[in-house]
Write a protein that binds this DNA or RNA. Sequence first.
DNA 1: ACGCATCACTTAACGCTGTTAAGCGGGTAG
DNA 2: CTACCCGCTTAACAGCGTTAAGTGATGCGT
Lengths: 207, 207
Amino acid sequence: MTDKCLQKKEEFRREILLAAREIFSLDGYGNFSMRKLASRIGYSPTTIYLYFKDKDEILFCLCEEFYVELHQTILKIVGENNDLLATLRRVLLAYVSFGLANPEQYRVAFFTNPSVYGSPATYMENDTMSRRAYLHYRDLVAACSAAGVLISMDGDTLAQVLWAGVHGVVSAALHTRDFPLVDPAILADVMVTGLLTGLGIRQTVCI
Amino acid sequence: MTDKCLQKKEEFRREILLAAREIFSLDGYGNFSMRKLASRIGYSPTTIYLYFKDKDEILFCLCEEFYVELHQTILKIVGENNDLLATLRRVLLAYVSFGLANPEQYRVAFFTNPSVYGSPATYMENDTMSRRAYLHYRDLVAACSAAGVLISMDGDTLAQVLWAGVHGVVSAALHTRDFPLVDPAILADVMVTGLLTGLGIRQTVCI
DNA sequence: ACGCATCACTTAACGCTGTTAAGCGGGTAG
DNA sequence: CTACCCGCTTAACAGCGTTAAGTGATGCGT
Protein backbone atom coordinates (compact mmCIF):
# COMPACT_ATOMS: atom_id res chain seq x y z
CA MET A 1 0.00 0.00 0.00
CA THR A 2 2.20 2.75 1.29
CA ASP A 3 5.08 0.67 0.04
CA LYS A 4 3.73 0.51 -3.48
CA CYS A 5 2.87 4.17 -3.30
CA LEU A 6 6.42 5.11 -2.41
CA GLN A 7 7.73 2.92 -5.17
CA LYS A 8 5.47 4.63 -7.68
CA LYS A 9 6.58 8.00 -6.41
CA GLU A 10 10.21 6.98 -6.77
CA GLU A 11 9.56 5.86 -10.31
CA PHE A 12 8.03 9.21 -11.17
CA ARG A 13 11.05 10.96 -9.66
CA ARG A 14 13.36 8.93 -11.84
CA GLU A 15 11.23 9.80 -14.86
CA ILE A 16 11.52 13.49 -14.07
CA LEU A 17 15.28 13.25 -13.59
CA LEU A 18 15.59 11.41 -16.88
CA ALA A 19 13.74 14.20 -18.67
CA ALA A 20 15.91 16.74 -16.89
CA ARG A 21 19.06 15.03 -18.11
CA GLU A 22 17.67 14.99 -21.63
CA ILE A 23 17.03 18.74 -21.52
CA PHE A 24 20.53 19.32 -20.22
CA SER A 25 22.01 17.31 -23.07
CA LEU A 26 19.81 18.88 -25.73
CA ASP A 27 19.60 22.51 -24.68
CA GLY A 28 22.36 22.92 -22.12
CA TYR A 29 22.19 24.03 -18.52
CA GLY A 30 21.42 27.64 -19.37
CA ASN A 31 18.20 26.72 -21.13
CA PHE A 32 16.89 24.38 -18.48
CA SER A 33 13.76 25.46 -16.66
CA MET A 34 11.08 23.91 -14.50
CA ARG A 35 8.42 24.84 -17.03
CA LYS A 36 10.34 23.23 -19.88
CA LEU A 37 10.88 20.15 -17.77
CA ALA A 38 7.17 20.01 -16.98
CA SER A 39 6.14 20.28 -20.60
CA ARG A 40 8.62 17.55 -21.51
CA ILE A 41 7.08 15.06 -19.12
CA GLY A 42 3.59 16.23 -20.09
CA TYR A 43 2.49 17.71 -16.78
CA SER A 44 1.87 21.17 -15.44
CA PRO A 45 4.87 22.94 -13.88
CA THR A 46 3.53 22.67 -10.35
CA THR A 47 3.29 18.89 -10.48
CA ILE A 48 7.07 18.65 -10.22
CA TYR A 49 6.88 20.35 -6.84
CA LEU A 50 4.89 17.38 -5.53
CA TYR A 51 7.95 15.19 -6.16
CA PHE A 52 10.83 17.60 -5.60
CA LYS A 53 11.08 20.37 -3.03
CA ASP A 54 12.46 22.84 -5.55
CA LYS A 55 14.81 23.21 -8.49
CA ASP A 56 17.83 22.84 -6.22
CA GLU A 57 16.78 19.35 -5.19
CA ILE A 58 16.65 18.32 -8.84
CA LEU A 59 20.10 19.75 -9.38
CA PHE A 60 21.32 17.93 -6.27
CA CYS A 61 19.99 14.62 -7.60
CA LEU A 62 21.66 15.23 -10.95
CA CYS A 63 24.91 15.93 -9.09
CA GLU A 64 24.60 12.69 -7.22
CA GLU A 65 24.02 10.77 -10.45
CA PHE A 66 27.11 12.45 -11.82
CA TYR A 67 29.19 11.34 -8.85
CA VAL A 68 27.84 7.80 -9.04
CA GLU A 69 29.06 7.49 -12.62
CA LEU A 70 32.36 9.17 -11.82
CA HIS A 71 32.96 6.92 -8.85
CA GLN A 72 32.22 3.83 -10.91
CA THR A 73 34.66 4.98 -13.56
CA ILE A 74 37.35 5.42 -10.93
CA LEU A 75 36.60 2.09 -9.24
CA LYS A 76 36.96 0.31 -12.56
CA ILE A 77 40.38 1.82 -13.15
CA VAL A 78 41.55 1.01 -9.64
CA GLY A 79 40.40 -2.59 -10.10
CA GLU A 80 42.27 -2.99 -13.35
CA ASN A 81 45.63 -1.67 -12.18
CA ASN A 82 48.18 -2.70 -9.60
CA ASP A 83 50.85 -0.04 -9.64
CA LEU A 84 49.72 2.79 -7.35
CA LEU A 85 51.20 5.69 -9.27
CA ALA A 86 50.05 4.38 -12.64
CA THR A 87 46.58 3.96 -11.20
CA LEU A 88 46.49 7.51 -9.91
CA ARG A 89 47.71 8.80 -13.22
CA ARG A 90 44.96 6.98 -15.09
CA VAL A 91 42.35 8.16 -12.60
CA LEU A 92 43.33 11.79 -13.05
CA LEU A 93 43.32 11.53 -16.84
CA ALA A 94 40.01 9.69 -16.76
CA TYR A 95 38.59 12.48 -14.63
CA VAL A 96 39.28 14.98 -17.39
CA SER A 97 37.81 12.69 -20.04
CA PHE A 98 34.74 12.16 -17.89
CA GLY A 99 34.28 15.86 -17.34
CA LEU A 100 34.63 16.68 -21.01
CA ALA A 101 32.26 13.85 -21.95
CA ASN A 102 29.60 15.14 -19.55
CA PRO A 103 29.98 18.90 -19.78
CA GLU A 104 26.47 19.84 -18.71
CA GLN A 105 26.47 17.55 -15.72
CA TYR A 106 29.91 18.84 -14.80
CA ARG A 107 28.53 22.36 -14.95
CA VAL A 108 25.71 21.48 -12.60
CA ALA A 109 27.98 19.69 -10.18
CA PHE A 110 30.59 22.43 -9.93
CA PHE A 111 29.51 25.73 -11.41
CA THR A 112 25.94 26.37 -10.36
CA ASN A 113 24.71 26.63 -6.81
CA PRO A 114 27.89 26.44 -4.75
CA SER A 115 26.17 24.91 -1.73
CA VAL A 116 23.82 22.19 -2.91
CA TYR A 117 25.42 19.94 -0.32
CA GLY A 118 24.98 22.33 2.58
CA SER A 119 27.87 23.44 4.76
CA PRO A 120 31.29 21.74 4.79
CA ALA A 121 30.39 20.24 8.16
CA THR A 122 27.18 18.64 6.94
CA TYR A 123 29.00 17.50 3.82
CA MET A 124 31.12 15.17 5.90
CA GLU A 125 28.22 14.10 8.10
CA ASN A 126 25.82 12.99 5.36
CA ASP A 127 26.61 9.98 3.25
CA THR A 128 26.45 11.33 -0.30
CA MET A 129 27.95 9.91 -3.43
CA SER A 130 30.05 13.02 -3.73
CA ARG A 131 31.59 12.34 -0.33
CA ARG A 132 32.13 8.65 -1.04
CA ALA A 133 33.88 9.38 -4.32
CA TYR A 134 36.09 11.98 -2.69
CA LEU A 135 37.10 9.86 0.29
CA HIS A 136 37.95 6.93 -1.95
CA TYR A 137 40.03 9.13 -4.20
CA ARG A 138 41.78 10.76 -1.26
CA ASP A 139 42.68 7.37 0.18
CA LEU A 140 44.25 6.44 -3.13
CA VAL A 141 46.39 9.56 -3.05
CA ALA A 142 47.27 9.00 0.62
CA ALA A 143 48.31 5.44 -0.23
CA CYS A 144 50.65 6.79 -2.88
CA SER A 145 52.11 9.13 -0.31
CA ALA A 146 52.48 6.34 2.26
CA ALA A 147 54.08 4.04 -0.29
CA GLY A 148 56.68 6.66 -1.01
CA VAL A 149 55.79 7.37 -4.62
CA LEU A 150 54.41 10.80 -3.70
CA ILE A 151 55.88 13.24 -1.22
CA SER A 152 54.89 12.87 2.40
CA MET A 153 52.08 15.30 2.98
CA ASP A 154 48.56 15.55 4.39
CA GLY A 155 46.34 13.33 2.22
CA ASP A 156 43.60 15.92 1.82
CA THR A 157 46.01 18.62 0.70
CA LEU A 158 47.77 16.37 -1.77
CA ALA A 159 44.50 15.00 -3.13
CA GLN A 160 42.95 18.43 -3.50
CA VAL A 161 45.95 19.89 -5.31
CA LEU A 162 45.95 17.05 -7.82
CA TRP A 163 42.20 17.40 -8.22
CA ALA A 164 42.41 21.18 -8.62
CA GLY A 165 44.88 20.61 -11.45
CA VAL A 166 42.61 18.40 -13.51
CA HIS A 167 39.56 20.38 -12.46
CA GLY A 168 41.30 23.48 -13.79
CA VAL A 169 41.75 21.81 -17.16
CA VAL A 170 38.09 20.79 -17.36
CA SER A 171 36.99 24.19 -16.14
CA ALA A 172 39.12 25.88 -18.77
CA ALA A 173 37.73 23.69 -21.51
CA LEU A 174 34.13 24.27 -20.47
CA HIS A 175 34.24 27.98 -19.79
CA THR A 176 36.52 29.49 -22.34
CA ARG A 177 34.77 28.90 -25.61
CA ASP A 178 36.10 32.27 -26.73
CA PHE A 179 39.74 31.51 -25.98
CA PRO A 180 42.18 29.65 -28.28
CA LEU A 181 42.75 26.84 -25.82
CA VAL A 182 45.24 24.06 -26.50
CA ASP A 183 43.68 20.59 -26.89
CA PRO A 184 42.44 19.70 -23.37
CA ALA A 185 43.77 16.16 -23.71
CA ILE A 186 47.27 17.55 -24.15
CA LEU A 187 46.81 19.98 -21.29
CA ALA A 188 45.62 17.14 -19.08
CA ASP A 189 48.59 14.99 -19.96
CA VAL A 190 51.13 17.73 -19.27
CA MET A 191 49.29 18.69 -16.10
CA VAL A 192 49.22 15.18 -14.66
CA THR A 193 52.78 14.41 -15.69
CA GLY A 194 53.96 17.70 -14.28
CA LEU A 195 52.17 17.36 -10.96
CA LEU A 196 53.01 13.70 -10.39
CA THR A 197 56.63 14.42 -11.21
CA GLY A 198 56.80 17.55 -9.12
CA LEU A 199 55.01 16.02 -6.17
CA GLY A 200 56.64 12.63 -6.58
CA ILE A 201 59.78 11.20 -5.07
CA ARG A 202 62.27 11.80 -7.82
CA GLN A 203 64.12 8.62 -8.65
CA THR A 204 65.90 9.69 -11.78
CA VAL A 205 69.22 11.42 -11.68
CA CYS A 206 69.44 14.65 -13.63
CA ILE A 207 72.28 17.08 -14.02
CA MET B 1 29.63 69.21 -29.91
CA THR B 2 29.63 65.60 -30.98
CA ASP B 3 32.92 65.33 -29.18
CA LYS B 4 31.51 66.61 -25.94
CA CYS B 5 28.46 64.46 -26.45
CA LEU B 6 30.56 61.32 -26.76
CA GLN B 7 32.56 62.28 -23.71
CA LYS B 8 29.38 62.72 -21.69
CA LYS B 9 28.14 59.37 -22.93
CA GLU B 10 31.41 57.74 -21.91
CA GLU B 11 31.15 59.29 -18.48
CA PHE B 12 27.66 57.90 -18.04
CA ARG B 13 28.90 54.47 -19.11
CA ARG B 14 31.60 54.59 -16.45
CA GLU B 15 29.01 55.62 -13.89
CA ILE B 16 26.86 52.63 -14.80
CA LEU B 17 29.82 50.27 -14.63
CA LEU B 18 30.76 51.67 -11.23
CA ALA B 19 27.27 51.00 -9.93
CA ALA B 20 27.40 47.51 -11.43
CA ARG B 21 30.64 46.76 -9.62
CA GLU B 22 29.10 47.99 -6.38
CA ILE B 23 26.14 45.66 -6.77
CA PHE B 24 28.48 42.76 -7.50
CA SER B 25 30.46 43.47 -4.35
CA LEU B 26 27.41 44.01 -2.17
CA ASP B 27 24.97 41.37 -3.41
CA GLY B 28 27.07 39.04 -5.51
CA TYR B 29 26.77 38.05 -9.13
CA GLY B 30 23.64 35.97 -8.59
CA ASN B 31 21.66 38.95 -7.35
CA PHE B 32 22.69 41.33 -10.07
CA SER B 33 19.97 42.51 -12.42
CA MET B 34 19.44 45.28 -14.92
CA ARG B 35 16.51 46.61 -12.90
CA LYS B 36 18.55 46.73 -9.71
CA LEU B 37 21.34 48.47 -11.58
CA ALA B 38 18.88 51.00 -12.98
CA SER B 39 17.40 51.80 -9.60
CA ARG B 40 20.89 52.22 -8.17
CA ILE B 41 21.83 54.89 -10.67
CA GLY B 42 18.38 56.46 -10.37
CA TYR B 43 17.08 55.84 -13.88
CA SER B 44 14.50 53.60 -15.44
CA PRO B 45 15.70 50.15 -16.54
CA THR B 46 15.44 50.94 -20.22
CA THR B 47 17.81 53.88 -19.99
CA ILE B 48 20.73 51.51 -19.59
CA TYR B 49 19.99 50.11 -23.03
CA LEU B 50 20.75 53.51 -24.51
CA TYR B 51 24.32 53.15 -23.26
CA PHE B 52 24.90 49.41 -23.44
CA LYS B 53 23.63 47.00 -26.06
CA ASP B 54 22.57 44.44 -23.47
CA LYS B 55 23.56 42.81 -20.20
CA ASP B 56 26.35 40.89 -21.91
CA GLU B 57 28.09 44.09 -22.92
CA ILE B 58 28.12 45.23 -19.31
CA LEU B 59 29.59 41.89 -18.26
CA PHE B 60 32.18 42.18 -21.02
CA CYS B 61 33.22 45.63 -19.77
CA LEU B 62 33.51 44.32 -16.23
CA CYS B 63 35.68 41.48 -17.54
CA GLU B 64 37.94 43.95 -19.25
CA GLU B 65 38.29 45.96 -16.05
CA PHE B 66 39.17 42.75 -14.28
CA TYR B 67 41.90 41.96 -16.79
CA VAL B 68 43.27 45.50 -16.61
CA GLU B 69 43.78 45.15 -12.87
CA LEU B 70 45.15 41.64 -13.20
CA HIS B 71 47.58 42.69 -15.89
CA GLN B 72 48.80 45.62 -13.80
CA THR B 73 49.34 43.30 -10.85
CA ILE B 74 51.43 40.99 -13.01
CA LEU B 75 53.40 43.85 -14.59
CA LYS B 76 54.30 45.14 -11.16
CA ILE B 77 55.66 41.76 -10.08
CA VAL B 78 57.63 41.35 -13.29
CA GLY B 79 59.14 44.79 -12.82
CA GLU B 80 60.23 44.04 -9.28
CA ASN B 81 61.97 40.73 -9.95
CA ASN B 82 64.92 39.63 -12.00
CA ASP B 83 65.04 35.87 -11.67
CA LEU B 84 62.71 34.39 -14.29
CA LEU B 85 61.52 31.37 -12.35
CA ALA B 86 61.01 33.34 -9.14
CA THR B 87 59.02 35.90 -11.10
CA LEU B 88 56.79 33.24 -12.63
CA ARG B 89 56.25 31.69 -9.24
CA ARG B 90 55.18 35.02 -7.76
CA VAL B 91 52.92 35.73 -10.69
CA LEU B 92 51.13 32.43 -10.32
CA LEU B 93 50.66 32.86 -6.59
CA ALA B 94 49.52 36.45 -7.09
CA TYR B 95 46.97 35.19 -9.61
CA VAL B 96 45.34 33.07 -6.92
CA SER B 97 45.39 35.93 -4.42
CA PHE B 98 43.89 38.23 -7.00
CA GLY B 99 41.14 35.79 -7.86
CA LEU B 100 40.25 35.18 -4.23
CA ALA B 101 40.29 38.92 -3.52
CA ASN B 102 37.89 39.61 -6.40
CA PRO B 103 35.61 36.58 -6.36
CA GLU B 104 32.62 38.20 -8.05
CA GLN B 105 34.65 39.69 -10.85
CA TYR B 106 36.41 36.36 -11.27
CA ARG B 107 33.01 34.71 -11.55
CA VAL B 108 31.95 37.10 -14.27
CA ALA B 109 35.19 36.73 -16.18
CA PHE B 110 35.27 32.92 -16.17
CA PHE B 111 32.03 31.32 -15.09
CA THR B 112 29.19 33.18 -16.73
CA ASN B 113 28.72 33.58 -20.45
CA PRO B 114 31.48 31.43 -21.93
CA SER B 115 31.78 33.47 -25.10
CA VAL B 116 31.71 37.15 -24.19
CA TYR B 117 34.78 37.58 -26.33
CA GLY B 118 33.32 35.90 -29.40
CA SER B 119 35.04 33.01 -31.15
CA PRO B 120 38.65 31.96 -30.48
CA ALA B 121 39.56 33.45 -33.86
CA THR B 122 38.11 36.86 -33.10
CA TYR B 123 39.70 36.69 -29.65
CA MET B 124 43.13 36.86 -31.21
CA GLU B 125 42.09 39.45 -33.79
CA ASN B 126 40.65 42.05 -31.44
CA ASP B 127 42.91 43.89 -29.03
CA THR B 128 41.30 43.24 -25.66
CA MET B 129 42.86 43.49 -22.23
CA SER B 130 42.24 39.80 -21.77
CA ARG B 131 44.35 39.05 -24.83
CA ARG B 132 47.10 41.47 -23.82
CA ALA B 133 47.35 39.98 -20.35
CA TYR B 134 47.47 36.45 -21.74
CA LEU B 135 50.10 37.16 -24.37
CA HIS B 136 52.32 38.89 -21.84
CA TYR B 137 51.97 36.02 -19.42
CA ARG B 138 52.61 33.45 -22.14
CA ASP B 139 55.79 35.26 -23.18
CA LEU B 140 57.00 35.10 -19.60
CA VAL B 141 56.46 31.35 -19.52
CA ALA B 142 58.08 30.94 -22.94
CA ALA B 143 61.07 32.94 -21.71
CA CYS B 144 61.43 30.53 -18.80
CA SER B 145 61.35 27.67 -21.24
CA ALA B 146 63.91 29.29 -23.54
CA ALA B 147 66.18 30.08 -20.60
CA GLY B 148 66.19 26.44 -19.62
CA VAL B 149 64.47 26.77 -16.27
CA LEU B 150 61.34 25.09 -17.62
CA ILE B 151 61.17 22.14 -19.99
CA SER B 152 61.30 22.85 -23.69
CA MET B 153 57.71 22.90 -24.88
CA ASP B 154 55.24 24.99 -26.86
CA GLY B 155 54.77 28.26 -24.97
CA ASP B 156 50.98 28.22 -25.18
CA THR B 157 50.74 24.68 -23.86
CA LEU B 158 53.11 25.31 -20.98
CA ALA B 159 51.45 28.62 -20.11
CA GLN B 160 47.97 27.15 -20.21
CA VAL B 161 48.86 24.18 -18.03
CA LEU B 162 50.34 26.44 -15.37
CA TRP B 163 47.34 28.73 -15.63
CA ALA B 164 44.89 25.81 -15.43
CA GLY B 165 46.58 24.77 -12.21
CA VAL B 166 46.08 28.06 -10.40
CA HIS B 167 42.72 28.57 -12.07
CA GLY B 168 41.68 25.21 -10.68
CA VAL B 169 42.58 26.36 -7.18
CA VAL B 170 40.58 29.59 -7.51
CA SER B 171 37.69 27.74 -9.11
CA ALA B 172 37.67 25.22 -6.28
CA ALA B 173 37.69 27.96 -3.68
CA LEU B 174 34.86 29.88 -5.33
CA HIS B 175 32.56 27.03 -6.21
CA THR B 176 32.77 24.51 -3.43
CA ARG B 177 31.36 26.33 -0.47
CA ASP B 178 29.87 23.02 0.64
CA PHE B 179 33.14 21.09 0.57
CA PRO B 180 35.78 20.97 3.34
CA LEU B 181 38.48 22.52 1.20
CA VAL B 182 42.03 22.95 2.46
CA ASP B 183 43.17 26.58 2.80
CA PRO B 184 43.45 27.84 -0.82
CA ALA B 185 46.74 29.58 -0.02
CA ILE B 186 48.26 26.23 0.89
CA LEU B 187 46.77 24.57 -2.17
CA ALA B 188 48.17 27.33 -4.35
CA ASP B 189 51.61 26.97 -2.86
CA VAL B 190 51.73 23.20 -3.30
CA MET B 191 50.27 23.52 -6.78
CA VAL B 192 52.83 26.06 -7.98
CA THR B 193 55.74 24.31 -6.33
CA GLY B 194 54.62 20.98 -7.74
CA LEU B 195 54.10 22.23 -11.27
CA LEU B 196 57.26 24.32 -11.47
CA THR B 197 59.25 21.41 -10.10
CA GLY B 198 57.62 18.84 -12.33
CA LEU B 199 57.85 21.00 -15.43
CA GLY B 200 61.23 22.41 -14.54
CA ILE B 201 64.69 21.25 -15.41
CA ARG B 202 65.66 19.27 -12.37
CA GLN B 203 69.03 20.36 -11.07
CA THR B 204 69.07 18.55 -7.77
CA VAL B 205 70.25 14.99 -7.49
CA CYS B 206 67.95 12.60 -5.73
CA ILE B 207 68.30 8.88 -5.20
C1' DA C 1 -24.61 1.96 -2.43
C1' DC C 2 -23.85 6.38 -0.53
C1' DG C 3 -21.03 9.99 1.55
C1' DC C 4 -16.81 11.53 2.63
C1' DA C 5 -11.96 11.98 2.52
C1' DT C 6 -7.79 11.66 0.23
C1' DC C 7 -4.91 12.08 -3.54
C1' DA C 8 -2.95 13.66 -8.17
C1' DC C 9 -3.09 17.26 -10.56
C1' DT C 10 -4.29 21.87 -12.52
C1' DT C 11 -5.26 26.87 -12.92
C1' DA C 12 -4.27 31.40 -11.35
C1' DA C 13 -1.36 34.29 -9.45
C1' DC C 14 2.90 36.83 -7.37
C1' DG C 15 7.09 38.89 -8.03
C1' DC C 16 10.87 38.51 -10.41
C1' DT C 17 13.99 38.54 -14.98
C1' DG C 18 15.98 40.69 -19.84
C1' DT C 19 14.45 43.29 -23.51
C1' DT C 20 11.67 46.02 -27.06
C1' DA C 21 8.20 49.44 -28.87
C1' DA C 22 5.93 53.42 -28.32
C1' DG C 23 5.31 57.88 -26.27
C1' DC C 24 6.39 62.21 -23.87
C1' DG C 25 8.67 66.58 -22.70
C1' DG C 26 12.16 69.91 -23.43
C1' DG C 27 15.78 72.16 -25.97
C1' DT C 28 17.59 73.59 -30.32
C1' DA C 29 18.00 74.60 -35.26
C1' DG C 30 15.80 76.54 -39.29
C1' DC D 1 7.19 79.87 -34.37
C1' DT D 2 7.50 75.39 -35.84
C1' DA D 3 9.59 71.15 -36.44
C1' DC D 4 12.76 67.93 -35.21
C1' DC D 5 15.78 65.51 -32.32
C1' DC D 6 17.40 63.74 -28.03
C1' DG D 7 17.07 61.74 -23.34
C1' DC D 8 14.26 59.35 -20.88
C1' DT D 9 10.01 56.95 -19.33
C1' DT D 10 5.89 53.98 -19.33
C1' DA D 11 3.82 49.86 -20.95
C1' DA D 12 4.32 45.62 -22.47
C1' DC D 13 6.03 40.76 -23.88
C1' DA D 14 7.74 36.45 -22.84
C1' DG D 15 9.84 33.90 -19.70
C1' DC D 16 11.44 32.43 -14.88
C1' DG D 17 10.73 29.83 -9.82
C1' DT D 18 7.33 29.17 -6.69
C1' DT D 19 2.91 29.18 -3.84
C1' DA D 20 -2.19 29.06 -2.81
C1' DA D 21 -6.37 27.59 -4.03
C1' DG D 22 -9.37 24.67 -6.55
C1' DT D 23 -11.04 20.43 -9.20
C1' DG D 24 -12.11 15.92 -10.37
C1' DA D 25 -11.51 11.14 -9.68
C1' DT D 26 -10.55 7.34 -6.72
C1' DG D 27 -11.00 4.53 -2.82
C1' DC D 28 -12.61 3.69 1.94
C1' DG D 29 -15.97 3.18 5.83
C1' DT D 30 -20.48 2.44 6.96
